[in-house]
């Protein structure tokens, strides 16, 4: 355990140099750096969020943010405050979004039965409501990706352009969304 910690500390001392090389386009250094950062990011996020699934979503969001703002790191300064501030900010944003979402969410089955849309067959209306309900449990970014790619049938390329993300990041968000949807589905039926 102590040796592991020593390794981790030694690796952290290398982070500013790795980031500097990443800023210069060294992809291997960047890969090593991001992978080394994940445990720290997770630790920072866990201090604010106790939902394990949301923690992993925020870790992913933090990695995407680091990628977007990697140019702003100044290698002459310590890197830990930079990473921690990004992770912490993304965690707070996720909590705010979850709070807003919960305050908007209304469960009223009576109203749904009373005011069902006559133009839509009952089964379709129920199905659409079920999809909306399930999507509402996803974090905003993941929900947007599912809506764009699976409901509006946009191509991955268009979704990536529209959301200013790479195609790989879109795929990753979709993958996490589907895993989460499967998990909530299993919870509902289990």
């Amino acid at each position: 355990m102590t040796e592991q910690r020593k390794d981790s500390d030694a690796s952290r001392a290398e982070w500013p140099a790795w980031m500097q090389r990443a800023q210069d386009g060294d992809q291997a250094a960047y890969n090593r750096l991001l992978k080394a950062m994940v445990p720290l990011i997770r630790k920072v996020v866990r201090r604010k969020i106790d939902d394990a699934i949301l923690v992993e979503d925020v870790v992913q969001d933090t990695l995407l943010t680091i990628h977007r703002v990697r140019a702003t790191y100044d290698p002459s300064r310590p890197i830990l405050p930079w990473v921690s501030a990004i992770a912490s900010s993304r965690a707070i944003d996720a909590l705010r979004k979850r709070g807003r979402h919960r305050s908007r969410e209304v469960h009223d089955d009576d109203a749904l039965n009373t005011y069902a849309d006559d133009a839509v067959p009952a089964d379709d209306a129920g199905h659409a409501q079920d999809i909306r309900e399930r999507l509402s449990h996803l974090p905003d970014r993941q929900r947007e990706m599912v809506e764009m790619v699976h409901l509006r049938e946009m191509s991955l390329n268009d979704a990536a352009k529209h959301s200013q993300l790479s195609i790989g990041a879109v795929k990753s968000l979709l993958h996490r969304a589907l895993v989460r949807l499967r998990q909530t589905g299993a919870d509902d039926h289990g």
Binding site: L34, K35, L63, R70
Partner: peptide, 20 residues
């Protein structure tokens, strides 16, 4: 593994950037 896949994608796309 999810994060590893994302990190692999991000690092493959990482072009040089200019510090502000």
């Amino acid at each position: 593994d999810d994060h590893d896949a994302l990190i692999d994608t991000l690092s493959r796309e990482a072009a040089p950037v200019k510090r502000p």
